[in-house]
Structures are given as C-alpha cells and as structure tokens.
Amino acid sequence: MNHPLLSVKNLTIDYIGDRKDFRAVDDVSFDIAPGEVFGLAGESGCGKSTIAFAISRLHKPPALIRRQSKILLNGRDVLDLTPQALAAFRWREVAMVFQSAMNSLNPVSRIGDQFHDVLMSHTTMTKAQARERAAEMLRLVDISPDRLRDYPHQFSGGMRQRIVIAICMALDPKLVIMDEPTTALDVVVQREILQRINDLRRTFGFSVLFITHDLGLMVQFCDRIGIMLAGRLVEENAAEAIFQTPGHDYTKKLWSSFPSLHGGALL
C-alpha cells in the first residue's frame, strides 16, 4: 500500500480514572487504502468505538490520546489540527455512522434541517441549493424527498439509519466510519443497508472503516480485517486469509463461536 488514505500509528488511548487509568486502546497501528473497506472486529469493550471516536477527534475527558499516537489522513496528522481546521475536516473528510441507529438524529429538528446545518456550515450553498442537495441524497437511499420536513420519530429504525448514511454522503467524504451501523436492525434491513453502502461506495469511491461484532457480515463486506483483543490489534489480514487461516488463537476462538456463517456472497 503506497499511499494509504488513513494511517493510524501507535494509537494509545487511556481513560483517566480517579486513581489509575484504563488503557482502552494500546499501541494500535493500521492503514486504510483509498476505496478500501477495513473491518475492525472484537468482543464488546475491546476499544473499537474508542478508535472510531479518536479518528474524528470526538473524545472528551476522561479520554486521553497518548503522545506517541498519530492519525494521518492523506499524510496530515488529524491530532494536530487547529480548531478551525478541525471544524472544516470533520464530515468533509471523515463522516461517521454511530452505533445506535435510533438515536443519532436530533429528535427535535426536521430531517431537512439536519442536512442544511451541515451543508451550510461547510459550503457556500444557498438555501435552495442545500435543499436540492438534501433531496438528492435522500433519493440515493430510497427515501422520498418530500419527507425532508418530517421529524426523526416519524421514520422507522432502518429508515433513520439510511438517513444518517445519506447525511454522511452529503459532503462527499473520503472516509466513512461505520460503528456497528446495523446492530439495532433486523437481518433483512441489515442486508439491504449494507448493499446500499456498497453501491454508494462504488459510486463515490470513499473508504470505509467498518466496526461490528458480526464476523460473518464482516467477512462478506470487508477487504481487510483487524481483530482486536482488550485494546490491542492482535491480527490484521485480508478478509479471506483471516477466515481461511486465522493466525491468532483468539481469532480461531472467535470463529468457533460463529459456527454457521450466513452462506452465499452478499455482495
């Protein structure tokens, strides 16, 4: 990989405690190439979301990203960005789908406004252009644009998640982080959404950092996979290889806990 889009180096993150600290991410390094889907798997609490948050620089105390850590996006260290540069960088370069589908849209504002605020603060679009763009994005995820005036509670969980994905596409980002984007959804909707993400990815060419518990899903969807255990990245390889010839004992154990994979190629 000559020019990775994202290059995480020695990422180490502590949660500062009253007496001692908890190391949630321990010296993790990995690269994501342009257009690639990189999967991060591991049991609950192993630090996946903590990594995702660090890449968009969303952490708040007590989290602390240790000195040696580097997060390079197109060669530029995200951790060095000034507040203005950071505001411009967020969503424009890295957009994010959060863990809970139900809860990541602001319940008291209209869907249209949640497109508008992001478009208006990152571009010089007029109101009308922003509306047009929002409608276009909604169509991409099969939601009728006349629902822009609706509130989040008027949509089903799957629709809300598709709306979030549409908002992610609004600025044409280079990297989309998906933190268990489908956990709260049933299997059919889950497949539908992944299908949609994959289509969009082909169209727009962004990279994906895909986080999930579901190894079966991961193998079908990702190009390469990293396996995490208690804050460390214990194995990293092409999806096929991780599946056929797991190297680490922990990976083998993970596989054995998923006896039956969803058969057939999803994509």
């Binding site: 500062i16 620089r57 952490h59 708040k60 989290a63 602390l64 990203i65 240790r66 000195r67």
Partner: peptide, 12 residues
C-alpha cells in the same frame, strides 16, 4: 487529566 494534558503526555 488536566495535569497529563498540560504536561504534553496526551491530548484529544
């Protein structure tokens, strides 16, 4: 946390 952040041990 403030102590560590001030002394350059880490950031956000």
């Amino acid at each position: 946390w403030i102590l560590l952040a001030r002394s350059g041990e880490g950031r956000l």
